[in-house]
Design a protein around this nucleic acid. Structure first.
Lengths: 190, 190, 190, 190
DNA sequence: AATGAATGAGAATTCATTCAT
DNA sequence: CATGAATGAATTCTCATTCAT
C-alpha cells in the first residue's frame, strides 16, 4: 500500500469492492471502515452520509469508464474500428478497475442514485448511442432500436465479465477476440 | 383452493414484486405483509425467515423458468429451431411472470442464496449449456467457451427485457424477431 | 401500576419526568425506555421520533394547564378574584402534574419546538394576557407592558415552585396565601 | 494581553453565547471552536473537558454577577435603597454581559454542575438572602420564607429579561422604574 | 502552543422476529 | 390459524476527545 494513498482513497476502494460484492444495502459502514482500515467516523469526514458515498463512487467510476471509452475515439475510422475501440475500452477498464464495472452494472438503476448519478450514466450510454446511430445511418448496424442494441451488447458483455471475474471463464486474448466478433455479429447489419 | 394457500400465494407474489423493484435488502417484511394484505407474523407461518423466503422464491421461479424452457423442447429439430424455442420461452416467461426474470437476474449471485438455490440456477444454465454444446458439436455454434456464449445471450436478453419493462423500449413482434436474429448471430457459427 | 395504564402513558410519564429533570438533549431514548419499562423500539411505535415525542408532550401538558386555568374562570367576578382563580389553578396544576410545569418552563423557548407547540404556548399566555389587559382597563393592574407583568408573575411563580419541588421550601396553605398576596401586589395598581 | 489569554477569552465568550442560546447539551465543541476562531483541540489546552468548561464558565459569570451586586453595596442605607442597588446591579450586569444571566438562569440546576459551581451559586443567593433577612428583621420585608421571596423576585426578573433579550419587550428607563417598583411591592411589608 | 484529522463510544432509529391474544 | 404490538440487535450517524504534525 503506497504511502501516497490517502484515507479517502482507501475508503473509496473498500466501498467499491464491498458494494460490488454484496450490494449497497448489504454493506454496512463498519464493514467499509474495517476493510479500509479507518475508524467508522472517518468515513463521515469525507462523505456526508452513505448515500453521498455511493453516489460519489458511482459518478467517479462512470466518469472513469466514460473517459476510457472516449479517449482516442477513432471518430474518423470505420464503424468496425469504432466498435473495436469501444470493446477494447471495456476490456481495459474491466482489467484496470476490477470491481467498477460490476458495481456500475448492479447499481445503475438503484433507488438511491441522485439526479447527477443518473445523468452521468446517461452520458455513458450516449457514447454507445452515438456509435449505434452513426452505424445505422451507414447501414452497417442492424435496424433495431438503439436502446435494444445497447442492451444486448452491454448486457452481454457485463454478464460475460462477471463470469470471468468469478473465475468461471478464463480470460485470454483468443477469448476476447472471439467475444468481440460475437458481439459485433449481434449488432452489425447482415 | 384453500384459504391458506391463497395467503401463501399473495405473500410470494408481493415478495417477488418488491424484491424485483427494490432488492432483497431494501425490502422489509412489513412492506411485503402490507402489500400481501396479511399480518407480518403470518409470513412466518409460511416461511421460517426472510432468507428462507427469498430462497424459496428464487427456487420457485427458477424452476418455473426451467419448466418453460424444457416444455416441448424440440430435441430432434435443428439447432436454429432449438434456439427459437429457447428464445420464445424466455419471451413467454417474461410476459407471464412480469417480475420473475428480473428478480432472477438481480439476485442470482446474491450472498444469501443457499446451496439449493445455486444448484437450481445451475440447472437452468445447464439447459443453455446443453444446447450450446450440441450446436458446437454440429459446427453450428461458434467455437467459444459455452459459458461465454451463455453469458452473452443471457446477459443481453435480460438487459433488454429490463429496458422493456422500464418502458424505455416498446415490445413488438417485429422487435422480438429482430432481437432473436441478433442473438442468434451472436452465437451461430460463421 | 394500574392495568389500564397503557404503554403510551408510561412513555409519556417517563419522558416528562426525565425531560424535566435533565432536559431534552440530555435525555436518551434508552433512558426513557428503561424508566417506562418498555423496549426502546416501542417508543417509536407511538412517536415518530424524539422531537415528535417532546412536542406531543409539550402540547399535551400546555393544553392540560390551559384547561386548568380556563375551567370555571370567573369572568364576571372582580379582577382580584380572577387573579385568585389563576393562582389557584397554577397551584393545583403543579400539585397534580408534578413535573409538567417545570418541563414547560424549561422547554418553552427550545429550538426543537414546532409551530403547533409554540402556538399552544401562546394560547396559554393569552389567558394571562387577557386577564392583565382587562385589569389594566379597570385601573386595577399596573400600567406596565402586559408581557412584562406576565413575565414577572409567571417567572416568579415558576421559580418558586421549582424550589418547592426541590424541597428547599415547604409548601403550606399559609405560604401559598402569602405568595399569592405577594404576586398580586407585584401587579396590582397602587 | 498575551495571545493565549485572548484565545481563552474568545473560547469563554463563544461558549457562553452558545450555551445560552442552545443549551449545554445542544452545543458541540466544534461549534464553540468555530465561533471562537480556534481549533477544536485548542479548547482542550485551556479546559480539561466540556464539563470543566461549563463549570468554569458558570463559576466565572456567577462570580462576576456576585461582584456586581456586592460592589458599593449600601449596607448602611435603607432597605429600599439596598433593593434599588440590587435591582440596578441586575440591570447593569444584564447589559454588560448580554448572555451571562440567561446562561446562569438556564443552567443553575443542571446535572453537570459540580460542587464548586453549586456553592458559587449559593453564595450569589446568599446576598439576596442577607438582604431579605435584614429587611424582615426591620419589618420592611414581608414575613414569608426568604427563599420564597428570592424565588419570586429572581425568577420574575430573569423571565422579564429573557423576554427583553428576545425582543418581545422594549427596554426603557420608564419600564425599569416600573418593574423595580413592581418587584419591590412583591417583597415589601404592607 | 495550536491545530484539525482521526477515532470509537454512544446516540437515534429501523426492522426481523416473537408471542400473547 | 392469523395477527400486530413489542422487542432488542444492528444500523447509521454524531461528537467529545486525542495526538501527530
Amino acid at each position: 500500500m503506497p504511502v501516497s494513498t490517502s484515507k479517502r482513497d482507501h475508503i473509496i476502494h473498500s466501498a467499491l469492492t464491498l458494494f460490488a460484492e454484496r450490494g449497497f444495502d448489504a454493506t454496512t459502514i463498519p464493514m467499509i471502515a474495517k476493510d479500509a482500515n479507518v475508524g467508522a467516523g472517518t468515513i463521515y469526514r469525507y462523505f456526508e452520509n452513505k448515500e453521498v458515498l455511493v453516489n460519489t463512487l458511482f459518478q467517479h467510476y462512470v466518469a472513469l469508464f466514460t473517459d476510457t471509452l472516449e479517449k482516442d475515439y477513432p471518430q474518423e475510422r470505420s464503424i468496425r474500428e469504432q466498435f473495436h475501440h469501444l470493446f477494447q475500452g471495456m476490456v481495459r477498464f474491466t482489467n484496470e478497475q476490477e470491481h467498477a464495472l460490476y458495481f456500475i452494472k448492479t447499481h445503475n438503476a438503484a433507488y438511491f442514485l441522485d439526479e447527477t448519478s443518473r445523468e452521468s450514466f446517461e452520458r455513458l450510454l450516449m457514447i454507445l448511442h452515438n456509435f449505434i446511430d452513426e452505424g445505422k445511418k451507414k447501414k452497417q448496424i442492424r435496424d433495431l432500436p438503439s436502446k435494444a442494441l445497447i442492451a444486448i451488447i452491454f448486457g452481454g458483455f457485463l454478464e460475460l465479465f462477471q463470469r470471468i471475474r468469478a473465475g468461471e471463464i478464463e480470460e485470454s486474448g483468443e477469448l476476447l477476440t472471439g467475444v468481440e466478433e460475437s458481439c459485433w455479429d449481434a449488432v452489425r447489419h447482415h
